[in-house]
Amino acid sequence: ENVVSAPMPGKVLRVLVRVGDRVRVGQGLLVLEAMKMENEIPSPRDGVVKRILVKEGEIDDTGQPLIELG
């Protein structure tokens, strides 16, 4: 899985990584606010952040691509 998608609709509060960062499975990639709760979205695998497809403050839909890993 190279693309991390939104598991729920919500607002992107914080992006915790930058392009080029090495990430490990379970590491937080970004924080979504949904139903007044903050949810940290973890990396599904080890890899390198290739692209960040959303910006802080954006509203996303379920299934929307958020981050691409390489």
Rank of each mutant, 00 (worst) to 15 (best):
M35W: 10
G26T: 03
G10L: 01
R22L: 13
Q27F: 05
R22K: 12
D21I: 09
I52C: 03
D61F: 15
I59N: 09
V49Q: 00
I52D: 01
K55Q: 12
M35H: 13
V15G: 02
E68D: 05
A34I: 14
L32H: 06
R24C: 13
P9R: 13
A6Q: 04
P65T: 08
P9D: 06
R18L: 07
V12H: 01
V49P: 03
S5R: 15
E33R: 04
G10H: 03
E1Y: 12
V12R: 00
M35E: 13
G28S: 12
D61V: 14
L53C: 11
I59P: 06
G47N: 02
K55V: 13
K36P: 05
E58T: 11
K11I: 10
P7M: 08
L66I: 07
A34T: 13
N39A: 12
N39L: 15
L13G: 02
E40L: 15
K11G: 03
G26P: 00
D46L: 04
V15A: 00
R45K: 11
V4N: 02
V17W: 00
N2H: 14
L66P: 02
L32V: 10
G70H: 14
S43W: 03
V15C: 08
V25Y: 11
L53P: 02
L69R: 01
G57V: 05
M37L: 11
E33P: 00
K11F: 09
P42R: 14
V31G: 00
G10V: 06
V23A: 02
N2L: 14
V31T: 05
D60L: 15
G70P: 02
G57I: 05
R14L: 07
P42A: 12
D60M: 15
E40Q: 10
E38G: 05
V15F: 09
L53Y: 13
V54N: 02
E58K: 09
G28V: 15
D46G: 08
V15H: 03
G63V: 05
V19P: 09
G10F: 06
L66N: 02
V49T: 02
L66A: 03
V49N: 02
N39S: 12
M35V: 08
M37G: 12
K55Y: 13
V17G: 00
G47D: 03
E1V: 14
R22H: 14
R51G: 07
V48D: 03
R51A: 12
R22P: 10
L13T: 10
V15N: 03
R14V: 09
V19E: 11
G63Y: 07
G63W: 06
G57E: 06
R51Q: 10
K50P: 01
D46Y: 08
M35R: 10
Q64F: 10
D61M: 13
G26D: 04
R45V: 14
L29V: 07
Q64G: 10
E40G: 04
M35L: 12
L69D: 00
K55T: 13
E33S: 07
E1K: 12
R22T: 12
L53W: 12
L69H: 01
P65W: 09
D46M: 07
N2R: 09
A6M: 09
N2I: 15
G20F: 03
M8N: 08
V12F: 00
T62C: 11
E40A: 08
I67T: 01
S43L: 02
Q27D: 10
Q64N: 08
K11R: 12
L66E: 01
G57P: 04
V4W: 00
V15T: 03
R51P: 02
D21R: 00
G70D: 14
G20L: 05
M35T: 08
L30F: 06
L66V: 05
I41N: 03
R14Q: 08
E56K: 08
V23Y: 00
L69I: 12
V48S: 05
P42K: 15
M35N: 15
M35P: 04
N39K: 13
K55W: 12
D60F: 15
P9I: 07
L53Q: 02
L16R: 03
S43P: 03
E38C: 11
E40N: 07
G20Q: 03
K11H: 06
I41W: 03
D61L: 13
L16H: 04
L29K: 01
V31A: 01
R18T: 11
L69T: 01
N39W: 15
Q64E: 10
E33G: 09
I59G: 05
E68S: 06
M35Y: 12
L16P: 02
V4T: 03
Q27K: 04
L29N: 00
R18Y: 04
V15K: 01
I59H: 12
G26C: 09
E33T: 05
D61I: 14
K11Y: 09
N2V: 14
L32R: 00
R45H: 10
V23E: 02
L29I: 08
P44S: 05
I67Y: 02
N2Q: 11
T62H: 09
E38S: 08
L69A: 00
G63H: 09
Q27N: 04
V23Q: 00
K36C: 15
Q64H: 13
G28M: 11
L32A: 00
K55P: 08
Q27A: 05
V19M: 06
G28N: 09
L30H: 00
E38R: 08
V49Y: 00
I52H: 01
S43N: 01
L69Y: 04
V19C: 08
L32T: 04
L30Q: 00
N39H: 15
V17C: 07
L13V: 12
G57W: 06
T62Y: 13
R18E: 13
K36G: 15
T62A: 14
V19T: 07
R24T: 13
M8A: 09
V17T: 01
G57Q: 07
I41E: 02
V15L: 11
S5H: 14
N39E: 11
G26M: 05
Q64Y: 10
P65S: 07
V3C: 13
V25L: 13
G47C: 05
P7D: 06
V17K: 00
V49H: 01
P9F: 08
D61R: 14
S5D: 06
L29F: 00
